[in-house]
């Protein structure tokens, strides 16, 4: 029996970590006598931002982390961020194989699976959002909390006033009015209790979560074919299962928020299309610039876009 070690980027109680731990349980069940995953903990065991390096250097064999945490080493992760597809489609169309090869080439890690995909981000505001004559969102006077993932969109396109704050400070910042709007995934607002202060959700949602499992390549290559098969098959099944589980969770969260008075405001028509296009294109522009600075032979910019963005899916 082979054993590999694993850590996860987020605290154990977070829903995304629970999803990963259920994947581990499935592997340990299917892999009895062949392959076992030993979870060493979360950010308390290896710092959140140090985990990608730790798996690269073989300190730990497997890490569950957003690609954005190693975006400096692998700009192609933005293909996932700006994707309007889930792991289910991109597994079928070969997109994830491409991402795997890029990971092997750039970082010496195996990209095992894209979990918890299909979750996107909304803008959430305290006060009722207003729109200009063309139906575009007006951001004048909005104090928007940002971070590295979405600032290109917020500042370059929306031209909003963005305030960088660590997640832990957002609760009191909302309470005091330091910020009155934030981006966040569709799921999780209730766990953070930010819904105490936020009253409006702006649709459509943009971006996608980019959480994935990466494995040290030497460890991976050293595993028996049977162990590899169990890991890969369980991961592919969990890609599908987690999309469905999180959709259910999203619907539950939205229902709970609706019941507590969250109002949904929607952008329409051309304004909606421009908003989505801007989120996507500011992110692609960033990816393109960084890819050109350090090109790989594995995949070009256009290949990636073709695999991770389907214009038909926007309608």
């Amino acid at each position: 029996e082979e054993t590999i070690t694993a850590v996860h980027a987020f605290p154990e109680t977070l829903i995304y970590t629970q999803s990963f731990l259920s994947f581990v349980d499935k592997v340990n069940e299917a892999g009895a006598g062949v392959i076992q995953i030993e979870v060493r903990g979360g950010p308390e065991a290896i710092g959140m931002m140090q985990q990608p390096d730790a798996v690269r250097d073989g300190i730990v064999d497997m890490v569950y982390t957003p690609g954005s945490f190693y975006g400096g080493a692998l700009p192609e992760k933005d293909a996932l961020v700006a994707s309007n597809l889930t792991a289910i489609e991109t597994r079928q169309n070969g997109g994830l194989d491409l991402i795997d090869r890029i990971h092997q080439e750039r970082m010496g890690v195996k990209y095992l699976g894209w979990f918890d995909s299909g979750v996107c981000y909304n803008l959430w505001t305290r006060d009722e959002p207003s729109f200009d004559a063309d139906g575009n969102l007006e951001v004048e006077g909005l104090r928007l909390r940002g971070n590295a993932v979405y600032n290109a969109f917020f500042t370059n396109y929306l031209q909003a006033q963005v305030i960088d704050l660590p997640t832990g400070e957002v609760y009191s910042a909302l309470q005091n009015g330091v910020v009155d709007a934030t981006g966040w995934t569709q799921i999780g607002l209730i766990d953070l209790k930010w819904n105490e202060f936020l009253n409006y959700r702006i649709e459509p949602c943009f971006f996608s979560t980019d959480l994935g499992v990466i494995v040290n390549l030497d460890t991976w290559n050293g595993l028996s074919d049977e162990a590899k098969g169990i890991l890969q098959n369980t991961a592919m099944q969990h890609e599908i299962d987690s999309v469905n589980a999180l959709r259910t969770k999203r619907d539950e969260d939205f229902a709970a928020l609706d019941a507590a008075g969250m109002t949904v405001v929607e952008l329409e028509g051309e304004a909606k299309a421009n908003y989505l296009a801007a989120a996507r294109e500011t992110t692609w522009a960033r990816m393109k610039e960084l890819m050109e600075a350090t090109p790989t032979a594995v995949a070009g910019y256009d290949d990636l876009i073709a695999k991770f963005y389907d214009p038909a899916a926007d309608n």
């Binding site: 954005s68 945490f69 400096g72 080493a73 590295a148 600032n151 960088d164």
Partner: peptide, 11 residues
């Protein structure tokens, strides 16, 4: 050698 960046507001 790896051309590592720290990603915050800037690379």
């Amino acid at each position: 050698e790896r051309n590592n960046f720290d990603v915050r507001a800037y690379y």
